[in-house]
Design a protein around this nucleic acid. Structure first.
Lengths: 219, 219, 219, 219
DNA sequence: TATGAATGAGCGTTCATTCAT
DNA sequence: CATGAATGAACGCTCATTCAT
């Protein structure tokens, strides 16, 4: 416990720099755009309505973002790169050895940490998921980050605990998939499909983590 | 095994009646629309391009479908209702007792059956997933079918095997979620995210089912 | 009185041959078209809605009327030519001498006779008035009939009574205008602007005729 | 005579504010629209041709007028309200007593004043007359202004001169109708039906007014 | 004779983007 | 930096008309 609390900083969410250098109007544009993209999707959202909701002139949007698509990317790419940021850490092996004795510790740290991130950036995460199929740039970035970084790192973690004899010897890609889908399935249910239910997060996370652990336990 | 093969008919896919009563041109319209909706999403697809791809006049589309949205719904709703059709069966308990001695048998039957369905209707399933957030009617239908029917039925199955002592005593909603996300996660990886990989379906299904079973096994 | 009743036949309305040779469907088309043209005007009425209201296929309209405009003309021209029909009579002078001792008798005969006609064909008369400005053919026909025939005949009548010393010696065109606008003004009020008022037709006609007579009386 | 010239200002036409606040392009749009609406009627006029005639992009029309109908109303409603403006005057009785000794003076003032108005706004007045039957809003406004205001005021005038013993004791509604239709009939002939004839306006107005006066003179 | 599927031009309107102010 | 008038292409959709059945 202490360990987690002490050393999990590498997992922590360095502020997504949405707001640092943005002007007042720019912030309102981004806010309005996020709202609209989430409600109707990117291509069904019109710049004129974004401008109206933001309380700026239509031209102002194009002063800050060359095209409507630029606006989407400006909103979505920083969140995308931070989604997997925690895994981009040097000396992962060292971290693993020092901080996570068991796969359980690792999983819980990941779930908790990503939960705060998703909770915070939920609207943009939704937009990201919706728009990825339709925008080459997003897909490329996503593959770059997720496939390369996240899978590589997560793969190392899995192999690490397989070698320790904790996890069943199945292809790491399958183990990752099974771990991730259980976690993402929780987030999906928790934040997207039935966000209004009266959730006991602690219990559900425990359930989910135990499910993964038993499912992947070496037999 | 024999049982499955003999009695799984209730799970089988009665033909989705896309094509029975449709005229030649109508079929071409639907085909072109499915292509476009998948490529660019509903609202970024123009009726003029759908018409061009279908090789019909634009007016012809509107003779058959009053609005562009009607076209979407005509494509997507029959698939949606068939997605969960197998679970809409009377005497589920009887079926369970006769055909599925173990949760494993049930899971495998479901996976295999839905796999053929998804494989066949993949483009439309993708469109469905993409467009659900933006169309009230789809959302309503989805909730009606999925939340009500599927969850009820699946819940009964889970409870059935919990009572038999096979499955761990956790809330059935959690057990359903964990089962489903593992299965859907497989489909997602298999057909949407990395369809081009060289998949060994039998092995992956076995892996996935065993993962669920161990994850939910009564302890 | 007797005279009027006996000899006014020349003023009477030979049946407008709308319906003689028309098929059942044709009648329904005409009926629906008249309704729509009156409600929304010719160019805002669509053949598809006319067909729907008539309960026939859209093609059927074009089997009977080559174009939408032909349909309008087929409806409107027979009524137009009958509007002024009563005045197209040979030996008008003879008729005048025999039947109408005073301008008053003539005016009353005209008003009563045209009232029954207008009452009967009101919807088509309305359409006629509405569409005349926009259709060359209608305008031509109208000028042909009204300007030439009606004004010539009416002019003769006026001159006849001026020569008898009954009417003031003003240009006959002015006398016609003043007579006609008083009569038409009554019809306009009676049938178009305030048809729902509780009209005492006899009294209003008497008032109107006396107004004209006093207005035009030789001084 | 002097009186009329001195005090008729209340009857005068405060400028219809068509042009004050309109941009250059807007004026061209309105001009082109008025032309087209008059030539072909509202619903047969296309926004694309209006734009072409106005020398602006089609989109520009919709920047200033949300719909084509808005454009119509923007053109037609100010003229409609000014049509009867002269009658909307306080202390009508006082005005009558001071300025119009006889019904004749009143009639002449009205005719002359409305003649300049109609002459000036003729195209729009024509459009107004044509479109009133097809647009609920116009009809409502028209009834509001004409039925309420104009008839009330005109009624008071008629009653005033009936009480003075100048006019015959018939229902004021009939007297108004007969007066108005004679005047409007003149305008109709003068400006719409045969505008090209060589009119002697003074003579025709005199004829018309005398016709009304003799027609309505107390007997 | 009657149908209604099919057409493509044209409809009113919205779009993302530009640019002079 | 911000505006909003202006653009013209493209939008979803309707139109009058044709024609094979």
């Amino acid at each position: 416990m202490k360990k987690e609390e002490n050393n999990m900083e590498w997992l922590f969410d360095e502020e997504v720099s949405d707001s640092g250098d943005l002007t007042e109007k720019q912030k309102r544009i981004v806010k309005a755009a996020v709202e609209m993209f989430q409600e109707k999707g990117f291509s069904a959202s019109s710049t004129s309505e974004i401008a109206r909701r933001a309380g700026v002139a239509e031209g102002t949007i194009f002063r800050h973002y060359r095209t409507k698509k630029d606006l989407l990317l400006a909103i979505v790419t920083p969140v995308m790169s931070h989604l997997v940021a925690p895994f981009i850490v040097k000396d992962l092996d060292k971290v693993l050895k020092q901080d996570y004795e068991h796969y359980e510790d690792f999983l819980k740290a990941v779930v908790r940490n990503r939960q705060t991130f998703i909770r915070k950036h939920l609207p943009i995460v939704k937009i990201l998921i919706q728009e990825i199929p339709f925008h080459e740039e997003l897909r490329t970035q996503f593959i770059e980050h997720i496939a390369k970084d996240l899978f590589d790192r997560f793969g190392k973690v899995v192999v690490h605990f397989q070698e320790k004899g904790e996890l069943i010897e199945i292809p790491s890609s399958s183990a990752i998939r099974l771990s991730l889908t259980a976690i993402l399935g929780f987030f999906l249910a928790r934040y997207i499909m039935v966000p209004d239910r009266d959730w006991d997060d602690e219990k559900e996370i425990e359930l989910t983590v135990q499910f993964i652990l038993h499912g992947l336990k070496a037999r």
